[in-house]
Amino acid sequence: MASSPARPPRTQLLSSEIDQLFEHYLNLLHQYDTLRSSLSSLQASIQQNIARANFDAQRGVRYGQDCYDQRMQAARRCCVTRDPEGAALFAVEAVGAVGEGEGRSAASEGVHEENAEGRKSEIPADGDGVKGEVDADETKEGEKPEEEAEKSAKKPKDPIRMFGILTPQALRLAQGGAIKMVEDVVPKLVSIDAEMKEVEIKIRRARKHRAKAEALEKTTVGERSEEGIAA
């Protein structure tokens, strides 16, 4: 895509802009291809482990839709944001692990512990100290059920539990692979796809502008040559 030195600056600029966009686009395509390969290998290992778990299972047991929990709650959720250039960015996070709920409760736990310790250390040597300690214990006990209720409400149970308590190793391996796929590969793939769509729009727009600039250039050159002939 080398441009001739005789080209006017406008078309030359647009051509170099298109080249830069294509370079970026090809980088994205390379990333997409790499992620696609890892998605395929992860998916193959998940399927293999599920097949192994089914093979080793007791007669009549199959780890499939008959075991699905009819009231399941998502343990991993998707989060969509936008990058400064306007392309969508996807992320998948575990509920509770990085969610606000647990972060808040963990932080509040830390504060409570600090307060309790602080109160204990502030206890003077006289008789009031006993009362102060009792108060601190009372407040701790009073808050505990609330915290536990909040935790149990926020954190969904491990999805592997719907297949029983003693699940085979192969099924746990499949779960590990699936978590990696859902948290790492899938959000990156869809984010790259969204960015590629944005770049495609920019490339098409730049091509259109270049075509217009070239047409304009041709008409001006034609007019000049006509004027020259007339003169």
């Binding site: 599920i50 343990a75 991993r76 099924l171 978590i179 859902v182």
Partner: peptide
């Protein structure tokens, strides 16, 4: 596989 990762929701 995907439900094992915890994406299932009813």
């Amino acid at each position: 596989g995907l439900l094992l990762a915890g994406i299932g929701h009813v």
